[in-house]
Amino acid sequence: MEVSGHIGPIRLFEKMIRSGICGIVLLIGLLGCDGGKPALDSPSRGSIVIAADESFRPLVTQLTSAYSGIYPDAHFRVIYAPEQEAINLMLKDSARIAFTTRKLSPSEKAVLDKRKIVGSVTKLATDGVALLINKANTDSLVTMSELKGIFTGKLTQWSQLKGGNQSSPITLVFDNNNSSNIDFILHTFGITDVKGLRIFTAKSNREVIDFVRTNPSTLGFIGVNWISDGDEPLTTELSKDLRVVGVSAKENPASRADYFQPFQEDLGMQRYPLRRPVYVLSREAHPGLGGGLVNYVMRDAGSLIIYKLGLWPSVKYNREINLRKQ
């Protein structure tokens, strides 16, 4: 009887300890779950949405594929859309980062400020808008003055251009009404009204290429990374039956040497007139997957991909060559 009188308190004490441990485990579990919120992504794992102007599809595809190859647990869902829509997706938190050709406007930045989000802007590269014509059209040179004349409606026929060899009207072909390509060109020439111009819009840069290939009187506008990756079979296939137009900033070019095409050296040396920056806009509030991708792009490996695509990287890819005396 005396022994049983001591067992009761011991069991009670053990029960209290077990209850305390369970409570601690429960508390840790609740803290770990952070009130039911999903775990944050990191630079090497997780899943985020990226928005990008469609003209950068080859660039973004290669960058995200290379990064996922290094970090198999990193997953990207990319939404390709006209530039303004891509920016809006980022502002509405439907995308973490956006690849664009411009920074946020004051009103767009105010959207992030209102939510106390410190956004970031990173310049990745210098890109160019390439002008394409059908191979049957031998008039492959144009001045900025002539281009402005086309977009103001003063020049409507190929025969009105210096060296023009066609009597047909000039049809301008863009990928989308709100794409970065058309916005950049209109802004460059200060055009606010396109009524009366012969403008055809396709659904993508790829379709611009296909349309120009089958229509000799057209002048197409695309992102240069669509046709500048010489290692890709698609690039070779897309470039068939096309000419890339040389553009001169001079009013009266003296020779062909005054015209430049949107290829790497002329972009980097700022000789091609229709060049533009490539930015990554981010709303990321923690060291996450978006920042990991941007850091990768700004290092040597990312710069090499940009370089390979024919753009001019903001951070140059350094090649080391070891010379050995034989």
Rank of each mutant, 00 (worst) to 15 (best):
M1C: 11
S4M: 09
G5K: 13
G5E: 06
I7H: 00
G8K: 15
I10G: 03
R11P: 08
C22S: 12
L30V: 08
G32F: 14
A39K: 12
I50A: 09
A51E: 03
E54Y: 12
T64R: 10
S65D: 06
Y67R: 00
Y67G: 00
Y67N: 01
P72L: 02
F76L: 02
R77D: 13
R77K: 11
V78P: 00
V78H: 02
V78C: 06
A81E: 05
P82S: 13
E83W: 00
Q84K: 08
R96K: 11
F99N: 05
T100I: 02
R102Q: 02
V118C: 07
S120C: 03
K123P: 02
A130T: 10
K135H: 08
A136R: 06
T138F: 01
K148I: 05
L155H: 11
Q157M: 14
Q160H: 06
G163D: 03
S167W: 05
S168N: 12
P169K: 15
T171M: 12
T171W: 10
T188Y: 13
D193N: 14
D193Y: 01
K203N: 14
K203D: 14
S204F: 00
I209Y: 11
N215H: 15
N215M: 03
F221L: 14
I222S: 03
G223L: 13
S228K: 12
G230A: 05
D231L: 13
T235L: 10
S239E: 04
V244Q: 02
S248M: 14
S248Q: 07
Q261I: 04
E265P: 01
R275H: 07
R275T: 13
V278I: 12
A301Y: 15
S303T: 03
L304Q: 11
I305C: 08
K308C: 08
G310T: 12
L311A: 15
Y317N: 14
L323Q: 10
L323Y: 14
